[in-house]
Design a protein around this nucleic acid. Structure first.
Length: 887
RNA sequence: GAUCGCGUAACUCAGUUGGUAGAGUACUUCCUUGACAUGGAAGAAGUCGUUGGUUCAAGUCCAAUCGUGAUCACCA
């Protein structure tokens, strides 16, 4: 109940973030020319946002990927690059169609009742409603894509690009129609191989009896899907299996229906597994399909595209395949055809959208040949090799290349047709009169190119959503847009921004998306679409569990923005974004960086207690020793932040910023300045420069503090986001050395004071003896030491002061005069220090006495160790001497 | 089954050309001193999973092994 006494010492993001964002967006900062004033000739940077599903809402994975993309984009923008971060949304065929179908169901109707045209109107309506939703949520994170260029994968221009690509590939013979066994979801239709998720399922293993047609006995056959046996067209055994030699060529009767099938041999059979007798159901099993083709077996489908059993199933016709299973099993059991039912754990394919069990199913679909990917595969390998010789990589982290190439090397034809209404309609037409089939970019071709008939029928299916996103690296740059949507791109875009500088995305869509963009980009542009590919990991909860709605452990990024701020969630994610490692996110992480924003805020408060407003670093000359020192430390931080960002080590960049601000600028810089008020004006300029570096990570608080410290406002001034990122600040070795000694003196004095239990109190006198090799301006150093070590008067001496306690450190000794105090803690401390030094000396001696070490190690390492040994010996000498004083 | 991660302080994790192990949190002791208690000072804490190997030198490179996770591929 202390709200009345509570001090206003915290930063309030709520008042800032929305306002600043709107202001910056309205000024066009996010667009390509937003940083016009600082753009440098020839520097371009581009990154395409992985388009979120138009029906989706923002989740924590989005927050991570968009934060990282935004950080790198803001950094490049500030660093003088002409920068494009291309935003957009994806039409997400199956997902969106499912949502609309559910809505219709709730209204008591169906898409069939509505008709294709009306249904698509509904889908577009849904797109308009929820498509705006996610892009507005994204703004809450403070991300800065070029919103004016926002695209949708089914907009007028991108439709053109899809047709351009399809027609071209069709005419090259890369896209063909084929009747083949595909992955079939009885709800969503055909799926590509990677849209099937294999999950372990506790199923049953049914052993059935098939009787020989000639009445000479029976066979035991095992299956996991008994309902498919109606489609059996053979029984097979291994040709070398002596157990079944005599039955080959015989006929068996299918239970209940008594259809006759033959026993054949095929090497596909594993003699050791089960009974060694396998039923062959070519229309409903991948392997059996191949067997069926080899043996020219009849392909009997036992259910239709909705999974409803047909006339081949006798009395069970009309039942749904999965519902029919127990009913069929019961009938078989009653008729004595089941020998046993065992538990069986096996992998079953599920639809990645609706989780329905996927069936192998024969159907006529469109396929994109894997041939067209070969060039991209070879180039990826070449590029990886070339980069690795330079110590770099195409993928970040580099190990992803293994999974990538392994998958690409086994690439199979891609089933690109989908039995949906929502999506890019396949631009293939068949002439009603002459039967000619062709692909056409026109939505309604005028006439059949062969017979000029005007009667034609377009393929009813649409393309896999990933077909259009496969073009995303180039289609928003105008590629294939046929002049449409031209207000969203420039004619020079392909030159400026292709290949894209960088792709940032999750590894989970590496095959769905990255691989497909690689093949399309290389095929059409003869150049891989990305210079760098960064794969980020998964965000998990604080216990390392995957977040899911059913577990209830989902962290909503919008809630976090509400509770903390966009800045805090951004910095937290960046700090935790270690390459190749999943992120465990908990409340504690956020707290750490909430404290950090508070630190920034209070540092600036302190500066303004002394000086009202500060100039930029470029506008002033740094004169004070402290100013020179802090500037030099900033120079190092700038260099390191740049290096780590260039390598996409977001966690390291964030950690360098954190350490510089807190452990260097605040803990030392600000504290020192209390001994030298003149330097505050310089520290303010240095802090403002630091805020520029913070800006890509925490854009709001940095802008706010920058303007506060400048005595300006964002409303009337420029944002940090379009100012130059710090660059090439001079190091000052002399200053750094001097302040290292000052710091060492302060730490030594504090240690010594703790020993005499005066840790927090001011003492009157203390002495410092610097090693002979150390030469600093003691007059200058003195006030800093006195202030921070809380000593009234420091005296530099050349010899040990009598009646004092001593602290021995690397380059100096300090002495505190003693009255009547208890010496035991001091003796304990010194003894411990001595033991530690002895160990160190032993280790160093061991190294240096080793002839091989001296012969082989680089000169620098040897001198370094010699020096270390000498230092340690000196130190132990002093410590021993000190101990002797007490004994 | 194949491929790839991960195993470092009590906890969560950093640690790239091999050169005497770091952070945050938690912990111990102390401090409301004039930016900040969402803070400050001092401190304790690790056989770097295990075993070998290469090397003058291994958390780092290699091999094996244990634990753990992911992806791909699978047998009716």
């Amino acid at each position: 109940m202390s709200e009345t006494t509570e001090k206003k010492s915290t930063y309030d993001p709520k008042a800032i973030e929305d306002t600043y964002y709107k202001l910056c967006e309205a000024r066009g900062y996010f667009e390509i020319e937003g940083n016009e004033e600082i753009q440098e000739a020839g520097k371009t940077f581009s990154i395409m946002m992985p388009p979120p599903n138009v029906t989706g809402s923002l989740h924590i994975g989005h927050a991570l990927t968009f934060t990282l993309q935004d950080i790198i984009t803001r950094y490049k923008r500030m660093d003088g690059f002409k920068t494009l971060w291309q935003p957009g949304t994806d039409h997400a065929g199956i997902a969106t169609q499912n949502i609309v179908e559910k809505q219709l169901l709730a209204e008591g109707t169906t898409k069939e009742a509505l008709g294709r045209e009306k249904f698509l109107e509904r889908a577009w309506l849904q797109k308009e409603i929820s498509g705006g939703n996610i892009v507005h949520q994204m703004r809450k994170l403070g991300v800065t894509p070029a919103w004016k260029r926002e695209r949708f994968t089914m907009d007028e221009g991108l439709k053109e690009a899809v047709k351009e690509a399809f027609v071209s590939l069709y005419n090259e013979g890369q896209i063909t129609q084929d009747t083949y066994m595909v992955n079939w979801c009885t709800h969503d239709g055909a799926l590509s191989d990677i849209e099937v998720e294999h999950e372990e399922v506790n199923g049953k293993f049914y052993t059935m009896i098939y009787k020989f047609a000639d009445g000479s006995g029976e066979l035991e056959v095992a299956t996991t899907r008994p309902e498919t046996y109606f489609g059996d067209t053979a029984i097979m055994v291994h040709p070398n299996d002596t157990r079944y030699k005599d039955i080959v060529g015989k006929e068996v009767l299918l239970p209940l229906t008594d259809r006759k099938i033959k026993v054949i041999t095929d090497t596909h059979v594993d003699m050791a597994f089960g009974t060694g007798v396998v039923k062959v159901t070519p229309a409903h099993d991948q392997n059996d399909y191949a067997v069926g083709q080899r043996h020219k077996l009849e392909m009997i489908k036992v259910f239709d595209e909705k999974g409803i059993l047909n006339e081949y199933c006798g009395e069970f016709a009309g039942l749904e395949r999965l519902e029919a299973r127990p009913i069929i099993v019961k009938a078989l059991e009653e008729a004595g055809h089941i020998v046993k039912i065992e538990d069986h754990i096996h992998q079953v394919g599920h639809c990645y959208r609706c989780k329905n069990i996927v069936e192998p199913f024969i159907s006529t679909q469109w396929f994109l040949s894997s041939d067209m990917a070969q060039a991209s595969i070879q180039k990826t390998k070449d590029e990886t090799k070339a980069r690795s010789e330079k110590g770099s990589s195409l993928f970040h982290p580099p190990h992803w290349i293994n999974s990538y190439t392994a998958w690409m090397d086994e690439l199979r034809p891609w089933c690109i047709s989908r039995q949906l209404w929502w999506g890019h309609r396949i631009p293939v037409f068949t002439c009603d009169d002459c039967g000619h089939q062709w692909a056409d970019k026109a939505d309604q071709p005028e006439a059949c190119p062969k017979c000029s008939s005007q009667k034609m029928t377009q393929d009813p299916d649409v393309l896999d959503t990933w077909f259009s996103s496969a073009l995303w690296a180039m289609s928003p740059l105008g590629w294939g847009n046929n002049g449409k949507m031209s207000e969203t791109y420039n004619d020079t875009d392909m030159v400026d921004f292709y290949p894209n500088s960088l792709l940032i995305t999750g590894f989970d869509i590496m095959f769905f998306w990255v691989a497909r963009m690689m093949m399309m980009g290389e095929h059409f542009q003869k150049e891989l679409p990305f210079k760098d590919i960064y794969m980020h990991a998964l965000v998990r909860d604080e216990h390392g569990a995957k977040m899911s709605k059913s577990k209830g452990n989902v962290i909503d990024p919008l809630d976090m923005v509400e509770e903390h701020s966009a800045d805090i969630i951004r910095f937290t994610l960046a700090y935790l974004a270690v390459q190749g490692r999943d992120i465990k996110l908990g409340a504690k992480n956020l707290e750490q960086f909430r404290n950090f924003t508070n630190k920034l805020y209070n540092a600036s408060n302190y500066l303004q207690l002394n000086v009202k407003s500060f100039k930029d670093l470029q506008e002033i000359e740094i004169k004070t020793p402290l100013g020179r020192y802090m500037q030099s430390r900033l120079a190092l931080a700038v260099q390191e932040v740049r290096e780590t960002l260039e390598r996409y080590k977001f966690n390291e960049s964030a950690s360098i910023l954190y350490n510089f601000v807190w452990n260097e600028f605040c803990d030392w810089g600000i504290e020192y300045s209390k001994a030298d008020r003149e330097s505050v004006v310089e520290l303010g300029a240095i802090f403002k420069e630091t805020l520029k570096m913070v800006s890509p990570f925490m854009p709001f608080i940095s802008d706010y503090l920058y303007h506060k410290l400048s005595g300006t406002t964002l409303e009337e001034g420029k944002s940090l986001m379009v100012m130059s990122f710090p660059k090439e600040i001079k190091r000052d070795e002399e200053s750094e050395k001097m302040f290292a000694i000052i710091e060492e003196s302060i730490r030594a004095l504090r240690r010594a004071k703790v020993v005499i239990d005066m840790g927090n109190s001011k003492i009157d006198k203390a002495y410092i003896k610097l090693d002979k090799t150390i030469h600093i301006d003691t007059k200058m150093a003195k006030p800093f030491i006195q202030k921070l070590a809380k000593v009234e008067e420091i005296t530099f001496v050349d010899a040990k002061v009598a009646d004092s306690i001593t602290d021995v450190s690397d380059n100096l000794e300090v002495y505190l005069p003693t009255g009547e105090i208890d010496m035991t803690p001091i003796i304990t401390k010194l003894t411990r220090q001595k033991e530690k030094l002895e160990k160190e000396i032993q280790k160093l001696n061991g190294m240096l006495n080793n002839e091989k070490f001296v012969a082989n190690a680089p000169e620098a390492v040897i001198t370094e160790n010699r020096q270390a040994l000498e230092d340690a010996q000196n130190k132990i000498h002093k410590v021993s001497a000190e101990l002797n004083n007490f004994s």
